[in-house]
């Protein structure tokens, strides 16, 4: 292998590592820097072939008003605190003022809003804990653009801990 090819090889390997670190960093920054809100959910429990067990989370705030029910449309849900959780106050198809707390979603093929936080991965064989819970809430971190990252799942009022149950 010539020196030039060797440099190219390790440059691609380095690019792969940088890509992974950037991918993780963007999510980590969103997690730590964002505004924290708690959302009410209704879970179901399928399985991913590549990523193992996970719970699909559907949110109370995922209802789409009829005038915005168009597949693929980006919808912003402005949130307000309703006791322990945050609920939908009003909807818009443009980004609200920065002094509002809002979450960005896309109308999916089921006519619900997909916020990119519909999947919660759990260790193998522990999906039933979420499935059997009577109350599941999700603590998410919201970035300034309204993108959400799951921070924690509260199962019956306590943080999800597969080993401790």
């Amino acid at each position: 292998m010539s020196r030039r090819v060797m440099i190219l090889f390790f440059a691609v390997v380095a690019a792969q590592v940088i890509g992974l670190v950037v991918f993780a960093s963007v999510r980590q920054i969103a997690l730590t820097e964002g505004r924290e809100v708690t959302l009410q959910t209704v879970p179901v429990d399928p399985r991913s072939l590549l990523q193992g067990d996970y719970a699909i989370l559907d949110y109370e705030i995922a209802d789409v008003p009829p005038w915005l029910d168009d597949r693929g449309l980006i919808v912003y849900v402005v949130l307000r605190q309703c006791g322990q959780v945050w609920c939908a106050d009003w909807h818009a198809n443009h980004r609200p003022d920065s002094n509002e707390v809002y979450i960005r979603g896309v109308v999916n093929d089921r006519g619900r809003l997909d916020f990119g936080i519909g999947t919660f991965f759990v260790p193998e064989g522990t999906g039933h804990i979420v499935e059997n819970a009577s109350d599941v809430k999700v603590v998410v971190s919201l970035s300034s653009s309204g993108n959400a990252v799951i921070k924690e799942v509260l199962v019956d009022g306590r943080p999800f801990e597969p080993a401790g149950r």
Binding site: A15, G19, L20, F23, A24, I117, T119, I150
Partner: peptide, 29 residues
């Protein structure tokens, strides 16, 4: 590794950018 990072941050496996990222990383090799 891409899917592990995605799993860690609860990004769904069918996210449209994960496999394209994998492809772009591998094809030059």
């Amino acid at each position: 590794s891409i899917h592990l990072v995605a799993q860690t941050y609860h990004v769904p496996v069918n996210h449209p950018n994960l496999v394209p990222l994998w492809f772009l990383g591998v094809v030059p090799l």
